[in-house]
Amino acid sequence: MFQSTLGSDGVLLFPSAPAPAPYHHSLYLRPFNFAYWAIFNVLRCPAAQVPLGLNGEGLPLGIQVVAAPKNEALCLAVAEHLGKAFGGYVPPCRVLS
């Protein structure tokens, strides 16, 4: 049903996670957050995570683009377009080399 709804030219925009990046080890307190991306693996759908910038606290935000199986090109094209529209990856902090 899900795959027929998407068809050959549809995409689903879905949150990458239920909240911004958590503190280290805090995921142990939320063991089912992986379902936000795992469900598309189970359905064998291509998915791409698109960075959308930083929230007010400086944490990275993003969204997933999901397409029907074997529609990787569409998924990546939409992800690239959204990435350009939102300015692409923004580092959350300055990294010294």
Rank of each mutant, 00 (worst) to 15 (best):
Q64D: 04
V78I: 11
V50P: 11
A68K: 12
L76I: 10
Q3S: 09
A67I: 08
I39C: 13
R30L: 10
I63T: 02
N71V: 01
G56A: 12
A21W: 05
Q64K: 03
S16C: 11
Q49R: 11
G7M: 06
K84F: 01
L6K: 02
P92W: 08
V66Y: 07
A38Y: 06
R30S: 13
Q49E: 13
S8R: 07
P60G: 00
P60H: 03
G87K: 10
C45H: 06
A77C: 12
L12D: 00
A47C: 10
K70D: 01
G10S: 09
H24W: 06
A17C: 06
F86T: 13
Q64A: 02
A77S: 14
A85F: 11
G58F: 05
E57H: 06
I63G: 01
V90T: 14
R30E: 15
M1Y: 01
T5M: 04
I39H: 05
H24M: 03
V66S: 06
L74G: 11
A68N: 14
H81W: 12
A35D: 07
G56Q: 13
E72I: 04
H25L: 07
N71Y: 00
G53Q: 12
V11K: 14
C93L: 07
L76S: 09
T5E: 05
C45Q: 09
L6N: 01
R44G: 12
L96K: 14
P46Q: 00
N41P: 05
V95C: 15
A35P: 03
N71R: 15
A17F: 04
F86W: 12
L43Q: 04
L29T: 09
F40H: 04
